[in-house]
Amino acid sequence: MSQTFAAQGLNAYAGDAHAVQDVSVSFAAGQLSAVIGPNGAGKSTLLRAMLGLTPPHSGAVELLGQPLAAWTRTERARQLAYLAQTEALPLDAQVRDIVALGRGAGEWKWGLFPVRPWSEEDEAAVLDAMTRTDTLAFAERRISELSGGEAQRAALARALAARPHFLILDEPTNHLDLAYALDVMRYLRAEVDRGVGVIAVLHDLNLAARADHLVLLHGGRVLAAGTPAQVLTPQNLQAAYGVRVEVVQAGERLVIVPVE
């Protein structure tokens, strides 16, 4: 069984826009993958299409070697946790209750009526997710009483609570300051070390440089894919963003500096 979440020749629409065009990508478990590319490149649409949230127009998506359609809705939800680009958490709910909703991918009758009572495993997963995202301290607070960065961590805890095989995050470092963003990268790396496949859309190329695998999208197509050193070249970035950059080796990591 191949430990990947992959798409072959995927085409998908966002509204009327042919936002994903003939995209083939493969994301491995136990790796931190970053999807990068300019605004409107089709990153969010690609993730949604791979998750089956917008029906793909054509092409194939495979999860762990099986076509996505072969998985039941519940099994699929248990394997793939998703954090949307604009996840609006209900303001008057407590953090703990939000994180607990992440366990929603349990057994349901017709997908609507829960048939499995809340278990100790659920409780443990919720506690674990909050511990790993440092949200335990404000478990009892309401979302409206959190800063944007704290709310983002609560949303991340909600996704982690499912204990998924793959964690798919659309701009998890959005609106976060340097320290918070690095915290999130640290949480994600910890998940990868436990064997989870993490796929994150990132805008900050210097954060993306910390990933194991990069996919650079442009105009709905894959412009480059591979290791940071293969993808983060001045040529690729000029082609994708139309901006001249210098790529500097700083210790083990690449640093991207715009030069205009």
């Binding site: 809705r73 949307a84 996840e87 929603g104 991918a105 997908g111 609507l112």
Partner: peptide, 13 residues
């Protein structure tokens, strides 16, 4: 309450 997309990703029809 998490939104249509997130709810769908959690397996809710």
């Amino acid at each position: 309450q998490l939104g249509d997309l997130t709810a769908a990703s959690l397996g809710l029809p």
